[in-house]
Simulated scan of single mutants.
Amino acid sequence: MAIMSAQLIFSLSLVFLVSGAHMATISITNNCPYTVWPGTLANAEHPQLAETGFELATRGTKTLNIPAKWAGRFWARTQCSGSFTCATAACGSGQVACNGKGAVPPASLVEIKFQSDDGQDYYNLSLVDGFNLPVAVAPENGSGSKCVKATCSANVNAACPASYK
């Protein structure tokens, strides 16, 4: 059973806390000097979160409740207009909520799988869809040698060093 908390940074951060077969909590912090609009997308066969997109001001933090055994991704959209078109990582919904739509590249991704088949939690940073913002996941109260902060602070051509945990 994994018990962990982490923080996601676009220069956003994510913190997650999991306990047994219970709900997890993720805190997303915007460390950018401008507003971002994080988006969420559940993996197939997992429920979408109650909020699939929201506005997050500079130094703002948003906490989300995540169902047990959930898997999905997070990213942040930038320079979004009143008609909700974004310069990067738009989800094509034309609104703040992404409603089951993923990010249009470029988008720095944080992927998380809570309580996988082996009972562990996994997270990684991915630039497979390009790079639009620095991201980090900083676990708290986790255990094991792989429960460490993962960061991707620059465009490194689709792979962040130490990004898989």
Rank of each mutant, 00 (worst) to 15 (best):
N31T: 11
A50C: 00
M4F: 03
S145M: 05
V110L: 07
G130M: 05
S143E: 13
P47E: 07
T35H: 06
V104H: 12
A24Q: 15
A6T: 10
A90W: 01
P106G: 05
G60H: 08
H46Y: 05
A89K: 05
T52H: 03
L14S: 07
T61P: 00
K62Y: 07
G142S: 15
C152W: 08
G53K: 10
S11Y: 07
K62A: 07
V110I: 14
Q120A: 10
N99L: 15
Y122R: 12
N99I: 13
D118K: 13
G20S: 12
Y123M: 10
T151H: 02
F114I: 09
G60S: 06
A138V: 14
V156Q: 12
L109S: 01
E51M: 07
T29K: 15
C98H: 09
V148N: 02
S143N: 12
P47A: 03
Q120W: 06
E140P: 09
N30A: 03
S126Q: 09
S145C: 00
A76S: 15
A57Q: 09
E55C: 01
N65C: 01
V135I: 14
T151L: 08
A71V: 08
T35Q: 14
I112S: 01
N30M: 05
V104D: 12
A103M: 09
C98R: 12
A21I: 05
I9N: 12
N30G: 04
A50D: 11
S143G: 12
V128Q: 15
A136V: 02
L49Y: 07
I112C: 04
S153M: 12
P38M: 14
T63A: 12
N155Q: 04
S27F: 06
N99M: 13
D118A: 05
D129I: 00
M1G: 08
A89I: 03
N30E: 05
L17N: 04
E51K: 08
C86K: 13
P161D: 08
A136D: 01
P134M: 00
N31P: 00
V104N: 15
W37D: 07
Q95K: 12
T151A: 14
A76V: 13
T40R: 10
P106T: 01
K165A: 15
I26E: 09
M4T: 14
Y164A: 13
P139L: 11
E140R: 15
N141V: 11
